[in-house]
Nucleic acid binder design. Structure first.
Length: 270
DNA sequence: AGGCGTACCTGAGGGC
DNA sequence: TGCCCTCAGGTACGCC
């Protein structure tokens, strides 16, 4: 489900909705979903106030007033939903509920139960494993070029590796490679300086455009208020096998790279 | 180092 | 209608 633009959208909504609220109740319906060092998750979280909600790669981070962080990975089908006071029925497939003092609550729901909610002492514990933020000023064509050099992995597999650049998933890897006119199976190290410049620009453009449209809702992504995104309506290649390329009139094909469905135009992506 | 298969889970959708 | 198969926005692990 969620890649950088979707998590960014969720996090912005959550920051507006629940920052400043105190957690007065914690219900863990699926213990395997939460991780917490030492004390029990519920004990460690209950009574804390949420001071802010932010994003790192595809991770949502709820910062608590004692400096701890609730790091949430939604994986494929996870949802973070804010429910107003008076809501009785539990959100479908809810695994963890944080209840606030005003009667509102945050539900972490996930049909497939791949998503995780982890309590961390400080950012150092996990931030080192997460790569560069593609929308930060640290991410420059020169840095990208340096990371790609001599690497033999297909460029698409490189883009999906969260330890290098954080936040790009299958949709936006496909879309950015189309925008940059680069064939997804190209070995990373073979990209020319021009290719790298186009890819760098394409990644930032695609991610920013998707954030502006509140992400892509292909199947089940919704933001913190349960609203769908709009970027699925403007996807150029993702999920469009057999359709005509809007740029060159070629045919969009589906292949498999790094075990993931990959959509691209055979004619104009080289 | 990196590719590949598999595992984790459930549900949707297509073909027959 | 219903059964069977494939696929899904992600990552981890073990094996070569």
């Amino acid at each position: 489900m969620p890649e950088l633009p979707e998590v960014e959208t969720i996090v912005r909504g959550l920051d507006r909705a629940i920052s400043g609220r105190r957690i007065v109740g914690v219900t863990v319906l699926r213990p395997e979903i939460v991780q917490s060092p030492g004390r029990s998750f519920a004990q460690a979280v209950r009574g804390r106030r949420i001071t802010g909600v932010s994003r790192r790669g595809k991770l949502a981070v709820l910062t608590l007033d004692n400096g701890d962080g609730l790091v949430v990975h939604l994986r494929m089908t996870g949802r973070l939903i804010v429910e107003p006071p008076g809501t009785i029925a539990p959100y479908p497939y809810t695994n963890v509920v944080l209840a606030f003092e005003d009667g509102s609550r945050l539900s972490f729901a996930d049909v497939r139960r791949f998503g995780r909610m982890r309590l961390v002492r400080s950012e150092e514990a996990w931030a080192a494993e997460v790569g560069l933020e593609p929308l930060s000023t640290d991410f420059t064509p020169a840095r990208l070029s340096e990371m790609l050099r001599v690497r033999k992995t297909p460029i698409k597999a490189f883009l999906l590796d969260q330890r290098r650049i954080a936040g790009i998933g299958n949709i936006y890897a496909c879309e950015a490679l189309w925008a940059a006119r680069i064939r997804p199976s190209r070995h990373a190290g073979t990209l020319s300086k021009r290719d790298v410049a186009r890819l760098h620009a394409a990644l930032q453009d695609v991610l920013q455009a998707a954030i502006a449209m509140h992400g892509s809702s292909i199947d089940d992504y919704v933001d913190a208020d349960g609203m769908r995104g709009g970027f699925q309506n403007v996807l150029a290649v993702y999920g469009r096998s057999g359709e005509t390329c809007q740029r060159c009139g070629g045919t969009i094909v589906r292949t498999v790279i790094a075990q993931r469905g990959t959509w691209w135009c055979k004619k104009c992506q080289r």
